[in-house]
């Protein structure tokens, strides 16, 4: 008994709609973000994550409206990421109703942002998203710009570094697995989970409920994030939790 492992549905949002792709490309429409978030709340999701994958800056404010509307209707925690560049961006999202803000590319380009933001708003609000791709056996590197740029940074080292800078949580996505439904990269998840003391959310590749359970029991993740298995109605969050509980994983039901 104690802290429950979390199941977090993730909504990739662009121009006000939820979309889902494979290996960061080939997007298909999955619906209205507020409606979907409400459905997950009813199903017992522990949190909801919105990743704003809108490329153009002129559409950036759309996410603020979505966050506001969501926070007014969904009474579980909300993490928002995508396009966060400055402490002011962090504040805007928190004021709109986000509980946590996730940063990715900007953290790599300007690590001080992680330190500044966590000093201002508390490290519990700052999530650093790490997109990692395997480059050799047992070796993963950090990619940015939605998976297009290799930074050359070692993913495990970068995870340690962001913890030291003040990140409160790591959202770890395997780009090799994202959208493939082949399961999490468990070796990556475990390597990062073991390297840091802050919570790690495993992401990328969930195709069935066994994958979610594996992320916790083998990957040692504190939370598991999935998108398409929930969006397209294959499983409900409740089914996922019941499955995990049957396997001895503590969940909130």
């Amino acid at each position: 008994m104690g802290l429950a492992k979390r199941i977090i549905p993730c909504l990739d949002v662009t121009a006000g709609r939820v979309v889902k792709g494979t290996n960061f490309v080939d997007l298909r429409d999955a619906g209205d973000p507020i409606e979907i978030a409400r459905r997950y709340d009813e199903q017992g999701a522990d949190e909801v994550t919105f990743l704003d994958i809108t490329a153009s800056s002129d559409q950036r404010d759309i996410i603020l409206h979505i966050v506001e509307a969501c926070a007014a209707q969904v009474f579980i925690p909300l993490t928002v990421g995508g396009g966060v560049r400055t402490v002011a961006d962090v504040r805007r999202l928190l004021n709109a109703g986000a509980d946590k803000v996730s940063m990715n590319t900007a953290a790599v380009q300007n690590p001080d942002l992680v330190a500044d933001a966590s000093a201002k708003v508390g490290n519990q609000c700052i999530v650093v998203a790490i997109d990692a791709k395997q480059t050799a056996p047992g070796l993963w590197q950090v990619f940015t710009h939605g998976g297009r740029n290799n930074t050359g940074l070692d993913a495990v080292e970068w995870a340690r570094k962001v913890q030291q800078l003040g990140a409160g949580e790591i959202l770890l996505t395997s780009m090799d697995r994202d959208g493939t439904k082949n399961g999490f990269d468990l070796a990556l998840t475990r390597a990062v989970s073991d390297a840091v003391d802050i919570p790690v959310i495993a992401s990328g590749g969930v195709g069935n409920l066994q994958h979610l359970a594996d992320g916790v029991s083998e990957g040692r993740a504190d939370a598991v994030l999935a998108a398409s298995i929930f969006h397209f109605g294959e499983y409900t969050v409740r089914e996922a939790k019941e499955y995990m509980r049957e396997r001895g994983i503590e969940v909130r039901l």
Binding site: L3, D46, I198
Partner: peptide
């Protein structure tokens, strides 16, 4: 000595 921050649902 567990993970900090303490994040999530707890009894």
């Amino acid at each position: 000595s567990l993970r900090i921050p303490h994040v999530g649902w707890n009894e």
